Amino acid sequence: MLDSHASLLKLFLPEIVIENFDIMGVIQDPETFHFQLEERNNTPEEWGGIKVQSKGFFPEIQVQDFPIRGHKVFYHIKRRRWIDTESKKVMYRDWTLVKKGTRMTGEFAAFLKQISQYSPE
Rank of each mutant, 00 (worst) to 15 (best):
H5E: 14
F111Y: 09
R80S: 14
H5A: 13
Q117N: 09
E19C: 04
A110N: 11
P30S: 03
Q64T: 02
Q36V: 09
M1T: 12
I18R: 02
T102S: 14
A6P: 00
D84L: 09
P44C: 06
I50M: 13
I23N: 01
M91G: 07
T105R: 09
P120L: 03
D3P: 00
E15C: 01
I23E: 01
K113S: 11
S54M: 05
T43G: 02
I77P: 06
I61W: 00
A6K: 01
E38L: 02
E39N: 04
V90R: 03
E15L: 07
G48R: 01
I18W: 10
M24V: 01
S87R: 15
K113T: 11
L13M: 09
K88I: 10
E45R: 10
K72A: 08
I68T: 02
L112C: 04
V98T: 13
I61S: 13
V98E: 03
L11K: 15
P67T: 08
K100E: 12
F35S: 03
V63H: 02
V52F: 06
Q28K: 05
S4K: 05
F66S: 06
V63N: 04
W82D: 01
K89I: 11
R81Q: 14
Q114M: 03
Q117E: 06
S87K: 15
D94Q: 02
E121D: 14
M104H: 08
K113Q: 13
D65T: 03
R79L: 08
W47H: 12
K88M: 12
Q36G: 00
Q62C: 05
H76D: 09
H34C: 05
H5V: 10
G56H: 03
S7C: 01
V26P: 11
K55Q: 08
W82S: 01
D3E: 03
E121Q: 13
Q114C: 06
F21S: 09
P30E: 07
G56W: 02
V90L: 10
I16K: 12
G25W: 00
S87I: 14
I77G: 08
V63Y: 01
R40F: 02
G25L: 00
G49M: 04
V63F: 00
Q36W: 10
H71G: 07
R93A: 06
Y118D: 13
K99S: 14
L37P: 01
V26Y: 01
R80K: 09
A109D: 15
S116E: 07
Q62D: 03
K10H: 05
R103S: 15
W95I: 14
I23V: 04
Q53D: 04
K55H: 06
F111M: 08
F33Y: 15
E46G: 07
E45W: 13
G48V: 05
I50F: 06
L13Q: 05
Q53M: 14
F66I: 09
I61A: 12
K113M: 07
F12L: 12
A6S: 04
